[in-house]
Write a protein that binds this DNA or RNA. Structure first.
Lengths: 203, 203, 203, 203
DNA sequence: AATGAATGAGGATTCATTCAT
DNA sequence: AATGAATGAATCCTCATTCAT
């Protein structure tokens, strides 16, 4: 096994045309998986939507599960990027937690189909799911640690508190994406967060 | 697990022998679905575990999805019964919320396989999933309304706050059942709840 | 193999209660087969309609096909009896053919479900079907032979002409029973028969 | 047998290879259905005879019933085409009716398997069966109307008389295809037709 | 005589994936 | 790079019939 076989993904497009095709397929896959779920969606649905032949799918992806995982990872990257951007210049760490939560919800809302995929990954590719949320928990925890050490919030187990915030995110994301009673999602987020925030405040 | 508590259909057993067989099937189904998930589990796995012929499954259930739904409903009923019992004689409503959350987690832990089914129902039988959580939210909300009206906690939108508590339940249940880092679950629950509780306390 | 095993059908009821049950099952079978067809109808449908348990069916019938055949034979017997009665006292042989055709249609109409079974027997129990129509052809042919020999109708191959009349019967029966445009059936019968009658009349 | 003449669906082959495969399947299906009947024939029988894998069947047909229907329609189209050709240049309308009937029988005889399918469609896909015979009745009726208006035959209800001729066709087709006493079929046809013809002639 | 539970060999259909062009 | 035909194991569900009571 030479280096090429490790570092080079031979399913990656080598031409601009190929890149375009792969992009079309990813887009189509996110829409189909997002709309109908992993098991309800067939490769043929994806290729039909992407306007390519069935075989083309396997030119760019090794399997159905692999695209699915790619989409989960993609969602993680883009969500983190979106939140980071929203938090630029925010110095108050408590404010940052709240803004971060909101940004998370906003992004999930704007990418409903992809967020549904994230949630379903729990039952299709559990490790991808773990990785996804762990990355957010790490960020929350780091922020909380900073706030603690600066005396901005009460001390506590920051790992644990961060998971609590993730719990809210998961639930709110689910609530919005699946149940679709969109008007109340932010209300729930704010109400819940404010409770937590009050608890976090120095006594 | 008895099948009396499950909604009637014309497939109900008419003899003790039949009741026993249905119970065996239900038990087997919960173990198989819980261990490997809805799509990974075949009817043949269930009947094999229950030591009956394949056709026997269809004597008692109309389809794979129907058993699955029955299990979700069953989980809802038994969980509520368990929590109710735990809360007997608890007069402090705030304490009740915490105890309720703990009881929920305990029950999910003791019925890991069934709780995983509840979560997967989000992707297999979404309405059953909604019904499940809605029943808990109603109970939480009622308790909060009582506490509010008695001046025990700060006023607020009790519907919304109840969904917040459900969010925690969902997340904690998931965390325990799927990720299996059992030792920390109650810690997370307590930490998160204490934060919320502080926020709920009268100023 | 003694005589008993030949002459005695051990599935025949031995008590009045049993006779009643078998009759209920036959009635139910004719309704179910007639309404939905042989393959679309399940033994369970029959027993449900007859208000007996599934196993009871096999107390009186050896198999699904056997009831079906019994019904075809029964239809043959009762139809012939009905026609015979209608033709009592009719001396004009040409008139008899017409009256016979009408009686056949009347009976098929009054026993739609059973007549549908007769037709379907072509694809389920072909020999029963052949027997059914052959019995009528024989009667028609005999009548025509008599009429020919008496000089009442033109000479011709009476076997063949009889089959022609059967052809009409089959078709008209089908037309009425399956297509259900009842008002015109007798019109078609009369028109067709009149054509034939003119052809049969002495030049 | 080509598949162009069959109603379009999204399963149509796009290459010559595919067209060939679909043709092989159609041929195999007609042989299997024709020889053993709809319910007795398995998809596996068809694909085995066509020398393709089971799944290939579903590349070209949506279901077992759908091929069956396609075959019934195909039979209608080709039979009409055959009769039309036989009637080219026949000006005598009464002669045309007789020739048409003969052509119908000839074609049914030459395509025994397909004609059996037509008849069984009465119990498998009744609407296809109706459509089949209605198309012939229309043609017969039109011809009779022309003959009537030209004073070539006695006046009468041409719709009804046409159904009478269909009755003969149905019966004769059945008689030939199912009972297989091939020698007599045309005799019966001629005898019956002559009777009718005398009835149709101007008084 | 009657019951209804249990059986298990079918049989239709699915669909991710491979292959040949 | 792209195509679409071909594959066939996988799986759900059916239902006539047998069995034990």
């Amino acid at each position: 096994m030479n280096q090429d076989s490790i570092s080079v993904n031979d399913k990656n497009p080598k031409t601009a045309r190929g890149a375009k095709t792969k992009a079309k397929l990813l887009e189509a896959a996110s829409l189909e998986f997002g709309a109908r779920g992993y098991h309800e969606c067939m490769i043929a649905d994806i290729t039909k939507r992407a306007n390519v032949a069935m075989g083309t799918f396997y030119v760019y992806f090794e399997s159905k599960e692999v695209v699915f995982r790619e989409l989960v990872q993609y969602m993680g990257q883009t969500t983190r990027a979106y939140i980071s951007k929203k938090l630029e210049g925010v110095s108050d760490r408590l404010e940052a937690e709240k803004k971060g939560l909101h940004a998370f919800i906003e992004f999930a809302r704007a990418n409903k189909d992809l967020y549904r995929i994230v949630m379903e990954s729990q039952f299709v590719a559990e490790d991808a799911y773990r990785d996804y949320y762990t990355s957010f928990q790490k960020a929350y925890a780091e922020n909380l640690r900073n706030a603690s050490s600066k005396g901005e919030i009460r001390n506590g187990d920051d790992e644990v508190r961060a998971w609590g915030l993730i719990g809210l995110s998961v639930f709110l994301g689910m609530r919005y994406c699946i149940w679709d009673d969109s008007k109340k999602v932010e209300d729930v987020a704010d109400a819940a967060f404010d409770l937590i925030k009050n608890g976090l405040k120095m006594g």
